[in-house]
Design a protein around this nucleic acid. Structure first.
Length: 276
DNA sequence: ACCCGTGTTCGCTG
DNA sequence: TCAGCGAACACGGG
């Protein structure tokens, strides 16, 4: 399940697979209607077919493909939700399970959008830039592309009583931070996830900003490759410091066990001894 | 059977 | 007016 680093890998893969290619036939699983709401699968397929992929961009967890066609330029906005993934299959290769959308390319390959839980979204937008898509205006800066301005982040956090872990998931503060990297960054910055956001000192926010970027860059370096394997999938190791490590010794102090707590209906992992 | 899940949106409340 | 909260969405895996 994708957070910013996984979506960045998806963007790089799509660039390799689809940039410069023309989309031919578009096939959609009839069960996948909700992915296209409020539009219909029929309108999506008709609007996309015949266009050529000019570029692939990412902002936070949002992917934006820019395509050119006879009717002009259009954007394909893709959010992977919890279980979405773009895959490429060559001619004759077996298609993935839960393939919801198939885009036949003029390279002979087929792009599959796989999404078992149907929490992802695919939408055609008239604008072809992120700043022309109204729904994306609310997104905060992208930590990898824009960096994290600790002073600006501290200013935002100062207005919130929410626990810092919950505030970090707010996409209007920073775009792309999800449940894993919120826990990982707070551990690296030695900040207790339960503390009210407004109570963090400037030094703590600076540590947090640095920790977020480092956690994401390490993950990106680790995942570079032809096809992403999400961490919870069979055969994948858990590469994180505290996420999913409840009961195991803290990798820093070794003297306390990692604790799992629930905040805003999501799991949080932390070391009660290191994180203050 | 039951619980859990790397995300977002909507409606309610104070 | 709005921050904050909980339910809902939907399906597979342990």
């Amino acid at each position: 399940m994708p957070e910013l680093p996984e979506v960045e890998i998806a963007a790089r893969n799509l660039r390799r697979w689809a940039k410069g290619r023309r989309v031919g036939e578009v096939e959609i699983d009839p069960r996948a209607r909700r992915i296209f709401r409020p539009a219909t699968p029929e309108a999506f397929a008709a609007g996309l077919a015949g266009h050529r992929v000019a570029r692939v961009d990412r902002h936070g967890k949002q992917l934006l493909l820019t395509l050119d066609g006879p009717g002009g330029r259009l954007g394909l906005l893709s959010h992977l939700g919890m279980t979405g993934k773009w895959l490429r299959r060559g001619p004759g290769e077996e298609e993935p399970s839960h393939s919801r959308v198939r885009l036949r390319l003029d390279s002979g390959a087929v792009l599959h959008y796989r999404d078992p839980r149907l929490f992802g979204r695919l939408r055609l937008v008239p604008g072809a830039r992120f700043d022309e898509v109204p729904e994306l205006e609310a997104l905060g800066p992208d930590p990898l592309r824009d960096g994290v301005d600790a002073a600006a982040l501290a200013g935002e956090l100062a207005r919130s009583r929410r626990p810092i872990k919950v505030a970090l998931l707010d996409q209007s503060l920073l775009a792309g931070v999800g449940n894993i990297y919120a826990s990982e960054a707070l551990f690296r910055a030695r900040v207790d996830p339960r503390r009210p956001a407004r109570d963090l000192s400037p030094a703590e926010v600076r540590r947090l900003a640095k920790a977020l970027v480092e956690a994401m860059e390490e993950s990106l370096a680790r995942q570079e490759g032809p096809e992403i394997r999400y961490v919870e999938e069979p055969g994948a190791e858990n590469p994180f410091l505290v996420y999913g490590k409840a009961g195991e010794p803290c990798p820093r102090c070794r003297r306390a066990a990692v604790v799992r707590a629930v905040q805003a209906q999501r799991s949080t992992f932390y070391c009660p001894r290191c994180q203050r």
